[in-house]
């Protein structure tokens, strides 16, 4: 536990020692504003809620989360500092978890900094703040799942660009597997059970309810399990490839 917190602090502060965190948060805030007001039609809808804001999160994370995850292991392997890290008296899972939690904390911070939107809806009307808090929580949970995919891909290669592209592709598959782009391809021939299974892997399907403030146990478990599975896969990969 002590090791985990030391590693977490190092990872977290390394985001702020370089411009990574500032650039990330800045772009996240700008883009979420653009999506909410221009694409999502925040004013035109005439409703005091944050649905247009949350609905775009999967698409925002699709590119931004791989960008923040890509350096985590790739850079360690490229610079050789992984040799240092792995010969310290810590276990690999502590390092993995610390990296995940640190990046997740940056994502959480970015989400918190969107609070002016929350102030705006509260000024304009009387939204259900419980729903908004639940949706924030759901969004953060989904970000954690995206992040675990990014970390796993980053463990796979020394090259950050490759790590980024791979994680965008895998994240994209997870995001759209519930949408018609993918389901149409199955609908003509596959039994409905297969379609349901494919659809149930989708981030979109699971996030839909969360964006409306409903936190169902199955959605919660889904994102947690996805996160754990990808982190575990990343752990196996880094143990295998650390010396390459």
């Amino acid at each position: 536990m002590r090791n985990l917190s030391i590693l977490f602090r190092r990872e977290f502060s390394s985001f702020f020692a370089t411009p990574v965190a500032y650039v990330f948060i800045g772009i996240f805030l700008v883009l979420s504003g653009v999506f909410t007001f221009f694409v999502g039609g925040f004013y035109e809808r005439g409703q005091a809620d944050l649905l247009p804001f949350f609905n775009f999160h999967p698409w925002l994370y699709l590119f931004l989360v791989p960008a923040i995850a890509m350096r985590s292991w790739s850079e360690e392997r490229k610079s050789g500092s992984i040799e240092l890290l792995m010969t310290l008296p810590i276990s690999t899972w502590q390092a993995m978890l610390a990296k995940h939690l640190a990046a997740w904390a940056v994502l959480g911070l970015s989400l918190l900094l969107t609070f002016p939107l929350w102030l705006t809806v509260n000024y304009l009307g009387n939204p259900d703040n419980g729903i908004i808090v639940a949706a924030y929580f759901g969004s953060w949970l989904m970000a954690g799942a995206f992040l675990s995919i990014g970390l796993c891909m980053s463990a796979m290669t020394k090259n950050q660009v490759i790590a980024f592209i791979l994680s965008v592709v895998v994240c994209f598959v997870f995001v759209v597997s519930g949408s018609n782009i993918v389901l149409d391809a199955f609908k003509s021939w596959a039994p409905s059970m297969v379609i349901d299974v494919v659809a149930s892997f989708s981030f979109l399907t699971h996030f839909e309810a969360m964006a409306k403030g409903v936190i169902a146990l199955n959605d919660l478990m889904y994102f947690l399990l996805v996160t754990i599975c990808w982190l575990f896969a990343g752990l196996v990969i880094i143990e295998q490839k650390k010396a390459d």
Partner: peptide, 21 residues
């Protein structure tokens, strides 16, 4: 391994470190 790692001081080839620190 963990017990042993505590007793070893190691300078890897090329002296890697976290450059941003």
């Amino acid at each position: 391994a963990l017990e042993i790692k505590k007793k070893i001081g190691y300078l890897p080839e090329g002296a890697p470190a976290y450059g941003d620190m």
